[in-house]
Write a protein that binds this DNA or RNA. Structure first.
Lengths: 121, 121
DNA sequence: TATTGAGGTTTCCGTTTGGTAACCAGGAGT
DNA sequence: ACTCCTGGTTACCAAACGGAAACCTCAATA
């Protein structure tokens, strides 16, 4: 009797496709919103929460840590009282802004969610 | 005794933020790869599977349907035998290409996955 | 008659994701 | 002695997402 192939395969190394890989970082919830908020200058944690109301602190922290680790933004603790933390785009992060602008631009012309109620339907 | 707030809230209407909304469509698995594959001309279902080997038929179908519904691509059945189906970008879909190019461009310079093994580590 | 190829659909299932709520530390202000 | 503010962290949980495998129709071909 032939043995079945077991399906508990260990996760394979990512295919290192730059497109797939880059979408892995851009694609997280609220990631682009964070970059968008920072494009006009540095923001603190609580300011970002105001800019993007539905984001939870947990996710915002996660996104900021990821973006910092990838060199998109930098994190600076200011010796104020209470100490505040300022996030700002790096040069690399700045390069993402036009790309996101392009997406927003097209986004305006996309048809809405397919199952969303349409005017006059 | 005060009643607890129940958490079975019905899903709220999307905030209709063009950025968030557009990322909702771009962000699905393999979506950008599909657009990327179509940028050079029309492709059939099975050709797309060759272009993007790890995509499963289920997900590929889902992505094609979504992109069609939002006017990014069009689907044409050709009366060959067996009938074949050709997918091609619309003008709107074409506008996404430079945006994706920009992302890929920056993606090249992003640091890799934070917990990925680094050369000499 | 069986097989092949196109273009899917369906079911099942595990992992990942993100939301909620609660909690925490340290210093400043009242 | 409290309370507030900043900037988080943690545990828990439900839903969504995507992969695997099996199955399907129709026509042409071997």
């Amino acid at each position: 009797m032939p043995l079945k192939v077991r399906r508990n395969r260990s996760p394979q190394p990512p295919p290192s496709c730059p497109l797939t890989e880059c979408m892995g970082i851009i694609g997280g919830a609220w990631t682009v919103n964070v970059i968008w908020s920072l494009r006009a200058g540095p923001r603190r944690f609580s300011e970002l929460r105001v800019d993007i109301p539905p984001v939870s602190p947990k996710v915002l922290t996660a996104r900021l840590r990821e973006l910092e680790a990838r060199g998109v933004l930098r994190r600076e603790v200011k010796p104020t009282s209470p100490p505040s933390v300022e996030y700002s785009l790096t040069a690399l992060g700045g390069e993402l802004v036009p790309a996101i602008e392009a997406i927003v631009e097209v986004g305006h012309r996309l048809k809405g969610s397919p199952d969303a109620p349409v005017a006059n339907a």
